[in-house]
Design a protein around this nucleic acid. Structure first.
Lengths: 114, 114
DNA sequence: CCCGTAGTTCAGGAAATCGGAACTATTGAA
DNA sequence: TTCAATAGTTCCGATTTCCTGAACTACGGG
């Protein structure tokens, strides 16, 4: 099994970040990881937005987030610990991730209200 | 030929905006329109990033930007006048478009420097 | 050593994207 | 009015990407 690839922050591309977060499942996962106090496992997201996500799809989603430079994944025993790279991305693209997370939160809030 | 559809600002979705701008051609077109003083035609972008874009693809790109709520397109005689909807989108998702345009400008600047 | 759990890889079917060719809409000139 | 030119749109087949079940790998515990 090939080791996990994490781009260095200089290699992070805007295009990859926007593509990664243009998927409703991935943006939800990322917002949760970014807002969490501690590292999150992959399987914690087996159902997102009241929808079952097969674990092969989940694995792909985490790969996309990881290779876009948005999260850091580290094997911890049998499971994976995922943390956000918000601070790093903030230095590269100031305000970007914060604005997206804000927008996502605003949309989620409105959906709940209706 | 069916009339052009523009979503009302309340119907604009984060997902659609991020998807629209996750394409290198579209983000370039949008940044240009947003930064321009006057309306831009479609064919003004026949070559973006030193690459020829076929007009059928250009038409699709404009449709994606339009239906995401990022631009307004209006027929003016034989050509199309495109303007950005930045102000409206700003009220719905504060800081989002500005951060993306900033990030895009930063990346373009770095690419030129190398 | 074997089992259970967590996640990855592979492969093929589904969906989105690209682009050439044909079409539509508008203007201006004959 | 008719014809030609210009600017975009639509259609459709080829390519690419995405999704997910099945098989696989990796680690920990008994």
């Amino acid at each position: 099994m090939r080791p996990l690839f994490h781009p260095s922050i200089e290699d992070v591309r805007l295009e990859a970040i926007l593509h990664a977060l243009s998927d409703p499942v991935r943006v939800e996962i990322f917002a949760d990881i970014a807002g969490a106090q501690c590292a999150q496992t992959c399987s914690a997201f087996a159902n997102v937005n009241d929808r079952m996500i097969p674990k092969s799809s989940l694995s792909q989603h985490f790969k996309v987030l990881r290779e876009a430079g948005l999260i850091h994944s580290e094997r911890q025993g049998v499971e994976m610990h995922n943390t956000s790279r918000c601070e790093e991305v903030q230095t590269r693209f100031p305000g970007l991730v914060a604005a997206i997370i804000n927008a996502h939160a605003a949309e989620a809030k409105r959906a709940k209200a209706s």
